[in-house]
């Protein structure tokens, strides 16, 4: 089967609250797609709908062209980490993996292999109730990897991990995507996904606010603006405006130029012998791009200001 996820027009209400309001996006194979947005943006609800746990009022989700509930032995197609703490504490980590394995027709051999892969080691035979958050997260990842799925869904996998654990998950995700798997990783912190995600789906108020590659998002937020420092401000403004740029004064000797590339600005100023001290491309961080996109979508801030 194809390894991708197609989410189309999901709508869902919980009483008076609209959780999903036309959520639509695609998760492609061979890439890590980051699923970001403030708390309450509908990320977890979307993941539950993808997995057939919650029913959407409208819209549909296809995994490799099939609805989740139609999958036979679904963990062999889709691996999911929703809430790593959702375990019965008296069962050992290994036994938790064992019942999951049995539900997919897999054996204890696969359980031991995957427990080793995530570094659970001897802890696998201890009761899961005594696990640290990091250990539970590893157990949850093991459960997601159990059926060697082509599609992975991880809800906030970095939560509660120490720096070693974060590096481990980043490397693991990269290797999974390199194998051609479709990987969807949600997070409410953009910084966690910087350097991890290839593609971003930004959610806000139950719908997609932005759906673009990380490079495009940063370019869009940067807005092709060029920062110019010059003592000859009026001359520079005339030259650049004649070339079609929009120029704004941002300080005593600084200008922000939009609509021209930095190289072109330098060429124009040099040709007209206008002196300048500095020309720099303004480059937004992923965090800035995200803040810009989700400004209207943050519910808590608006509520808190009342």
């Amino acid at each position: 089967m194809e390894s991708n996820i197609e989410v189309t027009g999901l709508r869902k209400r919980f009483g008076a609250v609209t959780a999903l309001d036309g959520m639509t996006f695609t998760v492609a194979a061979g890439k890590i797609t980051g699923f970001v947005g403030p708390n309450g943006a509908g990320k977890s609800t979307t993941m539950r709908v993808i997995l057939g746990l919650d029913a959407a009022d409208e819209g549909r989700v296809l995994i490799g062209g099939q609805p989740y509930r139609a999958l036979r032995r679904p963990l062999r197609h889709v691996g999911a980490l929703l809430d790593a703490a959702a375990l019965q504490p008296s069962r050992t980590g290994r036994d938790h993996l064992l019942w999951l394995a049995h539900s997919q027709g897999l054996t204890a051999k696969r359980v031991d292999a995957v427990a080793g892969q995530v570094g659970l080691g001897a802890a696998a035979r201890r009761r899961a109730g005594g696990y640290s958050l990091g250990m539970r997260q590893r157990l949850g990842i093991a459960a997601a990897l159990l059926g060697e799925p082509r599609v992975l869904l991880l809800d906030e996998p970095f939560n509660g991990l120490d720096p070693d654990g974060i590096v481990w998950i980043r490397d693991l995700l990269a290797s999974l995507a390199a194998d051609g798997r479709a990987v969807l990783v949600s997070s409410h912190l953009m910084s966690e996904l910087q350097g991890v995600a290839d593609h971003l789906v930004v959610a806000g108020r139950g719908r997609v606010v932005a759906d673009a590659s990380v490079a495009d998002l940063i370019a869009a937020a940067s807005g092709d603006r060029v920062l110019l420092r010059t003592a000859a401000r009026p001359e520079a403004m005339t030259v650049l405006a004649e070339a079609g740029a929009t120029v704004a004064v941002t300080g005593r000797d600084t200008l922000t130029v939009a609509g021209l590339a930095a190289e072109r600005v330098v060429a124009l100023l040099t040709a007209h012998a206008v002196p300048f001290a500095e020309v720099a491309g303004h480059r937004a961080t992923l965090e800035e791009a995200y803040m810009e996109l989700t400004r209207d979508a943050v519910e808590f801030r608006a509520d808190g200001a009342r």
Partner: peptide
């Protein structure tokens, strides 16, 4: 209810959607 109380029911229905 041991599964509902801990949230493990979601793992159950993810693994076994029927």
């Amino acid at each position: 209810t041991g599964e509902y109380g801990t949230g493990m029911i979601r793992a159950t229905f993810t693994a076994m959607p029927r």
